[in-house]
Design a protein around this nucleic acid. Structure first.
Length: 256
DNA sequence: AAGACAATCAACCGCGCAATT
DNA sequence: TAATTGCGCGGTTGATTGTCT
């Protein structure tokens, strides 16, 4: 199955956007809203492909975007969500109002990743980096290979202004988070927590193997997953997570 | 002052998926 | 059912800016 190019490359501008192009795009979307990106450039009088227009709007021109440096609180949220979700930048961005997936991805790659390495943590798995002996041992289990955590293992929430992850050996997670399978719209496999297909909603609510992150991350039903378990039932579910030896869990709530 | 190098981030690319034809 | 289209995502690139020597 062939795939046609998204636009007529020969007749489109590329590279950095200029002020006039930005103004045209803003004016058009203000007047007409976000519609069909493919037809937008022509309608707006832009020599850009629709994809480029969408990217420019989403990542730079949207009025609700928050510019400027990431706060330490935002960093913590990113780290926690990345530990749970991996490189699901769009999902992470959905929990940080005013931030885009591209911005978060760049911030991760340029700042946070290095900071984790400096702390001796593998930025992919969020676990302590093993020394040479580990190089010849089998690959470590995936970051999302979870086990049940008893509530007795939970530390109190960190004091205000105190970052539990900065202590190095504390895993900073929202223990009210649970996980469900991704929606059919999701692009790639989600962390392999639930290993069986999702049971019907009623059954799922009672099953300890069917848990939903998304609800507790503040997403509405069906927003990022296909789970429709009644919200009242989801609250009774717990977090399943594997701990490395010596690791502790600090209670941390993503929703402020 | 100038060149080399590193860091940053906007923009591009290719792909997967769902919807449409 | 297969082909096509459009959107959105994650990974990567490259231009710009900052810092060091």
């Amino acid at each position: 199955m062939g795939r046609s190019p998204c636009c007529e490359q020969a007749h489109t501008n590329r590279g950095a956007w200029n002020k006039e192009e930005d103004d045209r795009l803003i004016a058009y979307i203000k007047a007409n809203g976000e519609g069909c990106w493919r037809s937008l450039p022509k309608a707006a009088g832009l020599l850009r492909c629709g994809k480029s227009c969408r990217l420019r709007w989403m990542n730079y021109l949207r009025p609700d975007l928050k510019r400027g440096n990431f706060t330490s609180q935002e960093d913590e949220i990113i780290i926690n969500l990345h530990a749970l979700l991996g490189n699901k930048w769009s999902v992470i961005a959905a929990k940080l109002p005013g931030r885009t997936d591209n911005e978060i991805k760049n911030h991760w790659n340029t700042h946070i990743k290095r900071r984790l390495i400096d702390r001796g943590l593998d930025p992919k798995t969020h676990r302590p980096i093993k020394t040479t002996a580990a190089a010849v041992s089998p690959a470590p289990p995936p970051a999302h290979d979870f086990a049940v955590v008893s509530s007795n293992d939970i530390d109190a929430a960190p004091e205000e202004g105190q970052s539990s992850t900065t202590s190095g050996d504390v895993v900073n997670l929202d223990l009210s988070i649970s996980l469900c399978l991704p929606s059919s719209r999701s692009r790639t496999a989600w962390p392999e927590v639930a290993t069986t297909p999702p049971p019907p909603a009623d059954e799922a609510a009672a099953s300890p193997t069917t848990i939903c992150f998304c609800y507790h991350l503040g997403f509405r039903s069906g927003e990022v997953c296909s789970c429709h378990i009644a919200s009242s039932k989801r609250h009774s579910l717990g977090l399943y997570m594997r701990l490395e030896e010596g690791q502790r869990i600090a209670n941390y709530c993503v929703d402020s």
